[in-house]
Nucleic acid binder design. Structure first.
Length: 420
DNA sequence: TCTGGGGTCCTAGGACCC
DNA sequence: TCTGGGGTCCTAGGACCC
């Protein structure tokens, strides 16, 4: 059996751990730049606040019901996630960390174990150690474990744990699950299924596999088979290096200034370089994209991207930044107010497998040493201790984060103080 | 005034090989 | 009227996930 453990309203729960006065009250967490709602406590969900809505559209509800609003605090959520995962890892030799707030555990071979009792113990221990409430779904396939989790969250009688053990139960739960809620069925496929009068997970399992294969590719077919209790996906126990790495941000305010844009782009590029080095990779391609604010229809719009092929794959921040500058000069246009930029590095290879060039003028050994040193210093003294001058010092493009909570668990100066 | 960020996999079609 | 067969690699675009 596989178990899917999913943190309840994760970001909202993280905020509550350090402000327990908010328990039982509606709270929401916003996306970067304080744009959209990305997490809601149950009380906020009950008020009808939908996932992904721009916060300015629900100002009335927020004021009227005194909803607590938070900017995204990834330092906090990342650290809390690590604590939850470390705790979960003590319950099975095999764990796949699927996202910041979810993990699969492998219970294959746990034959002499009362899984329900075990799952309840996991919930209790995670809550005790981290303060984060979780829900647990257990089934023979990942997709069914996801479904079980869906019910564990929604049906109070389950008490946060749902185990799919027999056919009768599997059928019953499939019949109650809307097709669009199935893991792997997104908006487009849900609409397609609806058009063919398939409304529930059960009806989806009854559809012709040939038809599913044709309309939804082999991916859809796997989903169907997994719902029928046939395993198509195993746990992924080893993290493989990323095939593309992206760093992008919307700016706190729009800018028409090349210098400010370049500082932003250099910062994103430096971040990409760091991520590359962290997984011992080099990139052959660098893509830069920039665009204006598509919601400001009264302003002239410009969106463009460009991909440069690097002469030799690299993870050197300085070298990457030189190409990013060339890219920006090619697509930046005067007179437009840009809102967002991003850098993607791809064509990723292991740093030991970089194809050299006869005409290479870089001193790669020296550069690598320098980057190593830079990373070490930044790891020890904080991520912005040492950087390229090109990244600038003013950060005029910076995110809006007006409701940011303290980094309670990762900064000494943000530690909670208790007064007698 | 204000609308997120970072990924993966699959397929079709074109270019190319012998 | 006839004009092979079997393949690989790459990319863009579309679907999905959190």
């Amino acid at each position: 059996m596989f178990a899917l453990i999913d943190c309840n309203n994760f970001y909202a729960s993280c905020e509550r751990v350090f402000q327990p006065g908010l328990n039982g009250k509606p709270i929401i967490v916003l996306s970067n730049n304080d744009g959209c709602v990305v997490a809601r406590s149950n009380e906020a969900k009950a008020l009808g606040i939908k996932m992904g809505v721009p916060v300015f559209q629900i100002e009335g509800i927020v004021k009227q019901h005194k909803v607590s609003v938070f900017s995204s605090n990834y330092a906090l959520y990342g650290d809390m996630s690590r604590r939850v995962m470390n705790t979960l890892a003590t319950f099975s030799p095999d764990i796949e960390i699927y996202s910041i707030d979810e993990a699969f555990l492998n219970f294959d071979g746990f034959v002499h174990c009362d899984l329900e009792e075990y799952a309840r113990r996991i919930r209790q221990i995670v809550l005790q150690i981290t303060g984060i409430p979780v829900s647990i779904g257990i089934a023979h396939t990942k997709t069914l474990a996801k479904m079980a989790n869906y019910y564990a969250k929604r049906i109070p009688d389950y008490g946060g744990v749902c185990i799919l053990e027999n056919e009768t139960q599997r059928t019953a739960l499939l019949k109650n699950m809307p097709a669009g809620e199935i893991w792997g069925i997104g908006r487009k496929y849900a609409a397609l299924l609806e058009k063919h009068r398939i409304f529930t997970a059960w009806e989806f399992t009854r559809a012709s596999p040939l038809w599913v294969r044709k309309e939804m590719t082999v991916v859809g077919l796997r989903v169907q088979q997994e719902l029928c209790n046939l395993r198509c996906n195993e746990l992924e126990l080893h993290t493989s290096p990323k095939k593309a790495i992206c760093t992008s941000r919307s700016f706190g305010c729009m800018t028409a200034d090349f210098g400010i844009m370049y500082e932003a782009v250099a910062s994103f590029t430096a971040q990409c370089g760091y991520k590359l080095r962290k997984q011992s990779s080099c990139a052959n391609l660098l893509t830069l994209f920039i665009h204006t604010n598509p919601h400001r229809t009264e302003l002239p719009q410009h969106a463009e991207s460009i991909t440069l092929t690097l002469p030799v794959a690299t993870s050197d921040t300085g070298e990457l930044c030189r190409y990013a500058e060339i890219a920006l000069k090619k697509i930046f246009k005067e007179g437009y107010h840009y809102k967002k930029a991003g850098v993607i590095v791809s064509g990723i290879v292991d740093k030991g497998e970089v194809q050299g060039s006869l005409f290479d003028e870089e001193n790669r050994t020296k550069n690598e040493k320098m980057m190593e040193t830079l990373d070490k210093i930044n790891l020890r003294y904080g991520s912005h201790t040492l950087k390229l001058a090109a990244q600038g010092f003013q950060k005029k493009w910076k995110l809006r984060q007006e409701r940011l909570s303290p980094a309670y668990t990762t900064r000494w100066d943000h530690l909670i103080e208790i007064s007698g």
